[in-house]
Design a protein around this nucleic acid. Structure first.
Length: 799
DNA sequence: CAGTGAGCGAGCTTCCGCTTGACTT
């Protein structure tokens, strides 16, 4: 019988460690935090030293029950949660909710999961560090105060259900401000001159050291080149080196997988989680650059045997990121000699990336030789105002480049790959093949991708490895930000070429401004952000998190009392909450578009109760104002008067079919047709538009939908017209009225009788949470009673 | 699931950070 219970945070870790410890040890996991502030309400007594009200998280009730049973059977409890603020707090919450006795409880930490490290940890137990716990409580409570303090103000002043928080609101701010920078960007025009020269049959590229502002200047210079003679001027050869990037952290893994594999941040984490659970990589939520000695030695061995000892260069990297807590190692393969893993292609590719990055980080620098040639031009005086420069780069020793090179975020359209320059000597004359002057435009700052946003957040010290991916999905779920592709537009540019046929001027076209999977702010995002920046500048400051983090550190070091810190913050914060609630105006992002040609009344675009909308007239007028929602692709900032007027043309009568009207309109879920109280979605992608769709096409859409519905239908019943067996996305299912039911495994739907279906209905498990929407209105009359019932029913389900 | 936007008032929404499955029409 085992007398020791070890509790870690992750089940995969528990499994590994159990193997290292003898059979006197049982290892279990807490699955992260087990207790939190109560879900409902503030649950912080601000008048009583910020006394928090904790509860075991609903999804951890079972975990705690199981652990409690194991505690009873054990003599010593080892709390082996991560060695950081959150981990220390988890240990404390475990101690509290499992009623652990001080004398039987030991706190241990380890940084790598090896038999040795764990044995060492067991030999060196300590007590829970309550100062660190206090720092975590301050962090948790501050976030609750901010989130639950500001969000309700947004419900009143802008729109219900909105949210604000220390992390998400600043994230949205980054995106809104970047979009403004882009809108206000004034592009600069210049002329870039490049030439291809040759010597002894070999050619190379060179670029003029200066750009011209005006076409006229470029023309003048090109003209001078016609009769110029070119020769080799200065030649410079310089050694250079490149060093490998550090091993992966969560943030750099997300960035690199985005750049090289095209993964979203969420997908990277899902795939990494799987690799971790299968024992292929170390923990994937980390901000540490550290590799264990075991890993460094394994990399050294792998490099020496595969590439030779001269390729090995063991290195230690140290974290430079704000607020790094380093409870884990960097993300690396568990076994460096495992060059590939089984699994789907996502897993294989991500593993390959991690393997290469880790290996490269332990490899020698690459040695390069950079050459630079400056070309002399003789002829007209204007040629002396600038000179062509050619650059070459040769790799003398490839070092880490043999396996891996980090990607970049810049779309560098103009950077040419640098190759080897031909052999030449000072004074050699050069042939001119072609010289081109091209009109170029400066680029606006780039929009954020998910990965570049994560990079920015990490730089600012905002959020943690475990929250980057959820934060990005939160701001999208709240409708503050959308991830989209945008089509570019055509742009013309001037081109002057000089080749053996002489000078030639032309105009060419290019596509510019194409965006793929970039983050854009929505109207709501913009209005909420502006409201918050105006009224809560302190919390919206990019340095707010960094400054509270410093205070959390002071708490952890025992130099500051956590209640004092919260009190200092809350006094001012609460005053501003009250002030804003009382004195600030409703924020609607209102913009006047012009006048309605029919009535002469003003038309405005603004945020309404249900989102962005346009409105003719005001409620003060004798006649009621008219309203219409904006389409998904429209925005308050861009919509024109004409587009707004179009919105009021709906709903529109398309024609008659089967003795009933067909009308076209746009609803909450996009454009649709309505016929005999049935709805038929139409898509712009199919070339259908509610403003212009014709009768014959509408009939086509209706008939297509009817056909699809017929194919979906498996069986109906005479006993109940509302009951149907249908084919859905996940196979056959039973539909009764508005409720859907899963069929038991291995059921042949065509053979089900009416009674069978009734049975399936009755035996269906209770729907939980969000799924029960359809039933809600009926229960509305007896809400309090109905509510108790559902919570009571939930429990047996969790057995 | 589908045209809502006056104002009232019920009751609801909301935070960040730690960890995985269960579940979807």
């Amino acid at each position: 019988m085992s007398k020791n219970l070890v509790i870690v945070e992750s089940p995969a870790k528990a499994k590994t460690i159990e193997g290292f410890l003898g059979k006197d040890f049982t290892v279990r996991s807490s699955f992260g935090h087990v207790r939190d502030l109560k879900k409902k309400g503030l649950s912080v007594d601000v008048d009583n030293n910020f006394e928090p009200e904790y509860e075991v998280s609903p999804d951890k009730v079972k975990v705690i029950a199981e652990l409690k049973a194991l505690v009873k059977k054990s003599d010593v409890i080892w709390l082996a949660t991560d060695e950081d603020r959150e981990g220390e707090a988890i240990s404390w919450h475990l101690e509290e909710s499992l009623n652990l006795k001080d004398k039987d409880t030991k706190r241990i930490v380890f940084h790598e999961i090896t038999k040795n490290a764990i044995a060492k940890a067991i030999e060196n137990p300590r007590k829970i560090d309550y100062r660190l716990v206090d720092a975590q409580q301050a962090r948790r409570i501050l976030d609750r105060l901010v989130g639950f303090g500001i969000s309700p103000i947004l419900w009143k002043k802008i729109k219900p259900s909105l949210s604000a928080g220390r992390v998400q609101s600043v994230t949205v701010r980054l995106i809104v401000e970047r979009e403004r920078d882009i809108q206000n960007f004034k592009e600069e025009v210049s002329y870039r001159v490049t030439g291809v020269f040759d010597i002894k049959g070999k050619s190379f590229k060179a670029e003029l050291s200066k750009r011209f502002k005006a076409l006229e200047e470029a023309r003048e210079y090109m003209q001078a080149c016609v009769d110029a003679s070119f020769s080799v001027g200065d030649l410079e050869v310089k050694p250079a080196k490149k060093s490998p990037a550090a091993p992966f952290t969560t943030s750099t893994l997300q960035q690199e997988a985005g750049r090289k594999l095209g993964f979203s941040v969420a997908r990277t984490m899902t795939v990494a989680q799987k690799l971790y659970e299968e024992g292929n990589i170390t923990y994937m939520r980390t901000d540490s650059l550290n590799l264990s000695d075991t890993a460094i030695n394994a990399a050294k061995a792998e490099i020496s045997s595969s590439y030779g000892a001269e390729y090995s260069n063991p290195r230690k990297f140290t974290a430079k990121t704000k607020g790094a807590q380093e409870a884990h190692e960097a993300i690396r393969p568990v076994d460096m000699s495992r060059k590939a893993v089984k699994g789907d292609s996502s897993a294989q590719r991500l593993y390959d990336l991690i393997w290469k990055r880790t290996l490269a980080s332990q490899m020698a620098d690459a040695q390069l030789e950079k050459t630079k040639v400056t070309i002399d031009a003789k002829g007209s005086n204007i040629l002396n105002t600038a000179s062509f420069v050619g650059r070459g780069e040769v790799i003398k020793f490839d070092g880490f480049l043999k396996v891996y090179m980090e990607g970049t975020d810049d779309d560098q359209e103009e950077k040419e790959a640098e190759g080897l320059l031909p052999a030449m000597n000072k004074g050699d004359s050069l042939g001119r093949q072609i010289i081109t002057a091209t009109q170029r435009f400066s680029n606006h700052p780039p929009r954020y991708s998910e990965a570049s946003l994560v990079k920015k957040l990490e730089e600012l010290g905002i959020g943690r490895p475990s929250t980057y991916a959820p934060t990005i999905s939160t701001v999208q779920k709240r409708g503050y930000v959308v991830k989209e592709d945008r089509e570019g537009h055509q742009r013309q540019y001037n081109l002057i070429t000089l080749d053996n046929k002489g000078l030639n001027e032309s105009v060419a076209t290019e596509t510019t401004g194409t965006e793929k999977s970039k983050l854009f702010p929505t109207d709501i995002g913009i209005v909420v952000n502006d409201f918050l920046v105006e009224n809560f500048d302190k919390i919206m400051d990019y340095d707010f998190t960094a400054s509270v983090e410093k205070q959390f550190d002071d708490i952890a070091e025992g130099q500051l009392k956590w209640t004092t810190m919260l009190k200092d913050f809350y006094t001012g914060f609460n005053t501003s909450l009250e002030d804003v609630l009382e004195n600030s105006d409703r924020a609607t992002g209102e913009r006047e578009l012009g006048e309605d040609p029919k009535t002469g009344k003003p038309i405005i675009a603004r945020i309404g109760r249900y989102g962005p909308m346009v409105q003719i007239g005001s409620p003060d007028d004798e006649e009621k104002p008219q309203f219409a929602s904006l389409r998904a692709e429209q925005s308050i900032t861009n919509i024109t008067l004409e587009e707004a007027l179009d919105l009021f043309k709906l709903p529109r009568k398309v024609g008659m079919y089967e003795d009933a009207d067909i009308t076209a309109a746009v609803g909450r879920f996009g454009p649709y047709l309505r016929h005999k109280s049935a709805f038929y979605s139409i898509k712009e992608a199919d070339g259908d538009d509610p403003l212009s769709i014709k009768l014959d096409r509408s009939i086509e859409v209706i008939e297509a939908k009817r056909k699809a519905d017929r194919e979906k239908l498996i069986k109906t019943f005479d006993e109940d017209a509302d009951m149907q067996l249908l084919n859905g996305r996940w196979g056959p299912y039973l539909k009764v009225g508005k409720n859907n039911f899963k069929l038991p495994k291995d059921t042949e739907p065509t053979e089900l009788s009416y009674d069978d279906c009734l049975k399936i209905m009755k035996e269906a498990p209770e729907k939980k949470g969000r799924g029960a929407k359809a039933a809600a209105p009926k229960a509305a009359v007896k809400k309090p009673a109905a509510k108790k019932k559902t919570t009571a029913k939930k429990k047996p389900k969790k057995k």
